[in-house]
Simulated assay, not measured.
Amino acid sequence: MTDATFTPRVFSGIKPSGGLTLGNYLGAIKRFVGMQGQMETLYCVVDLHAITVWQDPVELRHATREVAAGYLAAGLDPAQSILFNQARVSQHAELGWIFNCVARVGWMNRMTQFKDKAGANAEQVSLGLYAYPSLMAADILLYHATHVPVGEDQKQHVELTRDIAAKFNHDYKVDFFPQTIPVIDGPATRVMNLRDGTKKMSKSGESDMERINMRDDADTIAKKFKKAKTDPAALPDTLDELRDRPEARNLIDIYAALSDATPEAVITEFAGAGWGRFKPALADLAVDRLAPISNEMTRLMDDPAEIDRILTDGADRARAIAAPILSRTAEIVGLLR
């Protein structure tokens, strides 16, 4: 292996905690599918990240399979992409430890997501929750991934990945790890709550009406969009006029992402329309795009052995890439293996 040779390669993953939402689909999975064929693609269910907070073991196994089912139902082709769950490839944890010894405490202290999740109970959370950004760096760099499709809220973690790669290369005087590029583009890369457009759509929100679950049936999808919070004003002529209307802008972005259009094109199409016209149109579009995925996820979840077969095969292929990169990393560090 030549240290400075980096094959164009995509890596990204989703944590199996709670169910998949429309935010996961538009912000991640739909983009993952769209990148197939452009370069080598690896997509992971990051179950080691899930256990940074306590998980019921039975529910975790179910959720891991459900994320995999979501990938597959949305169009991810295991013949084109490598699909696996993180725990099947032990090199993630091994490189994660090495990166714990490269990353600096000050870098971790600046991670805003840890502060948001830990809140006032920072002294009581697991060490894993504090250190998980360095494991995320290991997830990416274990495959010398050059591109990572992420939401805006994960950009800081990719920047940390770049810092860890740069420090490793500097400390050991090598050009071994690439400077990974975060890929943040398109409408609705950050899907907001249907009841509060200032908050991200979450698996753990208080009300199920706040989110579209990827297992929702057609009637439920339509009902949730028709009841989504809006304001009394009609849709304007330009996006700039939605600057102080977060719920309206969120629905426009969702429509754009589902229809593969730009938000500008959507606002032009519906300029002057009231919500009585726009919401049913959005509901119909969402049902058309999402109900087949929901139905396919249900079919796949009825055959967990097939999901496990796909994940096992993907892990074997992932390990074939990861093992020599980890071995070279250990050699650079000076570890006898």
Rank of each mutant, 00 (worst) to 15 (best):
Y25M: 03
H62M: 07
T220F: 04
S126N: 09
A228R: 01
I321S: 00
T329S: 11
I98R: 01
G96T: 01
K199E: 14
D237I: 12
L22E: 02
G128V: 05
T146I: 15
D77C: 06
S17Y: 03
P16Q: 12
A118F: 12
F11E: 11
K117N: 09
G34C: 02
Q55V: 15
Y130R: 01
K224N: 04
F278W: 09
K173E: 15
L83P: 06
L95E: 08
E159R: 01
G119S: 13
R289I: 07
I82K: 05
D216Y: 00
R245S: 10
A283V: 04
Y172G: 00
V10H: 08
I267H: 01
A233Q: 11
D208S: 10
R337I: 12
A248S: 14
K203D: 09
E94N: 05
E241Y: 06
M209N: 13
A320I: 11
A166N: 14
A261S: 12
Q80V: 10
V58L: 12
D303L: 02
F6S: 03
V45R: 12
G18T: 12
F99T: 04
K167V: 13
Q156G: 06
K224D: 03
F225C: 02
T41D: 08
R195P: 01
D219K: 14
I307F: 10
M108T: 10
A4C: 07
A122R: 14
G205M: 08
Q154R: 05
H62I: 07
L290R: 11
T112P: 08
M192Y: 02
D231F: 05
L290G: 06
G18P: 07
K155V: 10
D77P: 11
K279L: 14
Y130W: 15
A261C: 07
V150R: 08
V174I: 01
T21E: 08
H157S: 11
M201Q: 03
